[in-house]
């Protein structure tokens, strides 16, 4: 559930996402998993309750097969393995009310096709990798017209036509440090040319402090895009955390460049529940307006 008081736009309260995870695991090499989402089922805007903005979508739907103990094959629709945020983007799992543009502007959040996932030991820690081939144009054509979240009217679509890429992730033995590198070559729906994207992500946990960062560089035909963010989370007391983030991005798609700061409080009142209050101020590309935003999320 989300409440927004954006600058220059009416206040709004909505039942933002209602997601259902469904899986079937018969205990052998095969298993199935799906995530089905009802978005914006209820919206209160300018004092009026509306239900006509609701949309149903399957976010993920795939079959997974264990080729070997350390290697899996995934077939279907899955989250694009670029960066860390996109792979764990559920509202109760992330610290802020708003997603950094770095994690959603440069590539489509989902891919449809085939993926290979592997894992191994590395200097006492773990490395994992995920390679993918996408053919959304053939396999998920209905999604092609869906605009990027909050980006309706800007001509940005949250779908690949086709894509190829992967991510390598290293994790320390105590899981307190992680480092990832992503590479993707793709054409997004509505774009005239293929793009090459390089990405990096990093996270560190020390005592009360959690640091996260992601950055990307995307080569374009006429102009390149690049950007990144650094986010710090400090535990104040119990489940209450202070969150700060700064992001700088140059978007050739939006013809804008600039920074955005976000300051917020996140209260994890229960293992499965989180309340977040944040204020965002930006001077760069805008997909969503600046201002206050409050959210409440539950994960069961």
């Amino acid at each position: 559930m989300r409440g927004e008081a954006p600058r220059g736009a009416p206040n709004r309260l909505d039942l933002h996402d209602l997601s259902l995870f469904a899986g079937w695991d018969p205990g052998g090499r095969w298993r199935l998993f799906g995530e089905f989402e009802l978005g914006e089922a209820l919206v209160v805007r300018e004092g009026r309750l509306r239900t006509d903005q609701r949309e149903f979508d399957y976010e993920r739907l795939y079959a997974e097969y264990d080729l070997r103990p350390d290697l899996k094959l995934r077939l279907g629709k899955f989250l694009t393995p670029v960066g860390r945020w996109n792979l764990i983007h559920a509202d109760p799992l992330v610290w802020t009310t708003r997603r950094p543009l770095t994690t959603e502007l440069p590539f489509a959040a989902h891919a449809s096709g085939l993926s290979l996932l592997g894992e191994g030991a590395w200097h006492g820690g773990v490395f994992d990798y995920q390679l993918f081939v996408d053919d959304s144009l053939a396999l998920d054509p209905d999604r092609g017209d869906r605009p990027l979240a909050g980006g309706a009217g800007m001509g940005l679509h949250d779908s690949f036509d086709h894509a190829l890429g992967g991510r390598l992730h290293l994790l320390s033995a105590d899981a307190r440090d992680g480092l990832g590198a992503s590479l993707a070559w793709f054409r997004r729906r509505g774009e005239a040319a293929d793009r090459l994207l390089l990405g990096g992500d990093w996270h560190r946990r020390r005592g009360r402090l959690v640091l996260d960062s992601e950055a990307f560089y995307r080569f374009g035909r006429s102009a390149d895009d690049w950007g990144g963010f650094l986010q710090a989370v400090a535990r104040i007391h119990g489940g209450l955390h202070l969150v700060g983030r700064y992001e700088y991005i140059r978007s050739a798609d939006l013809g804008a460049e600039g920074g955005a700061g976000l300051l917020g409080l996140t209260w994890r009142f229960h293992r499965a529940g989180v309340v977040k209050l944040g204020f965002q101020e930006s001077a760069g590309p805008r997909v969503q307006p600046d201002g206050w935003i409050l959210s409440y999320g539950l994960l069961y």
Partner: peptide, 14 residues
């Protein structure tokens, strides 16, 4: 307790 975050992410991955 430290691994709760890890398992929350794994839940999300099914």
């Amino acid at each position: 307790e430290d691994m709760r975050g890890f398992w929350d992410e794994r839940y999300f991955q099914g």
